[in-house]
Amino acid sequence: MSPVRVLGMMSGTSHDGIDLAVVEFSVVADGDRLRARVGEHRTVPYSDGLRADLVAALPPARTDLAAVCALDVRIGQEFAAAAASVTDAFDLVCSHGQTVFHWVDGGAVRGTLQLGQPAWIAEATGAPVVSDLRTADVAAGGQGAPLVPVLDRLLLASFVEQGRTAAALNLGGIANVTVCAPGRPPRAWDTGPANALLDAAAGGIDRDGRLAAAGTVRSDVLADLLAEPYYAQGPPKTTGKELFHPGYLDRFAGVPREDLLATLVELTVRTVADALDGVDVVVASGGGVRNPVLMAGLRFRLPGLVVSDELGCPADAKEAVAFALLGFAAAHGLAGNVPSCTGARGGRVLGRLTPGRWAVPTVPGVSAWPAGLDLSPAR
Rank of each mutant, 00 (worst) to 15 (best):
A168V: 11
V44S: 04
L7G: 00
D199G: 03
T191H: 12
A145N: 08
G312N: 11
G39K: 07
A140E: 08
V363M: 06
L133Q: 10
A330V: 00
V100D: 09
L169R: 13
D280K: 06
T354Q: 15
P3D: 01
P118D: 07
D32C: 05
V283G: 10
L169G: 10
G126V: 03
D91L: 07
R37Q: 10
G278C: 01
A84L: 04
R251A: 14
E123H: 14
F323S: 01
A67E: 14
L198N: 05
L154G: 15
T271I: 15
F79M: 07
G173K: 02
A66S: 11
G204K: 08
A89W: 01
S14K: 00
E161T: 04
L20P: 01
A232M: 02
L20K: 01
V321E: 01
V100Y: 07
R35P: 04
L155S: 02
R348H: 13
V28L: 11
L225R: 04
D64K: 10
A324Y: 05
L353V: 13
V38I: 15
G287D: 09
D16L: 12
L20W: 08
R184M: 14
R42P: 00
T362V: 15
A296W: 04
S367N: 13
L154N: 11
A29Q: 12
L222Q: 01
A81V: 08
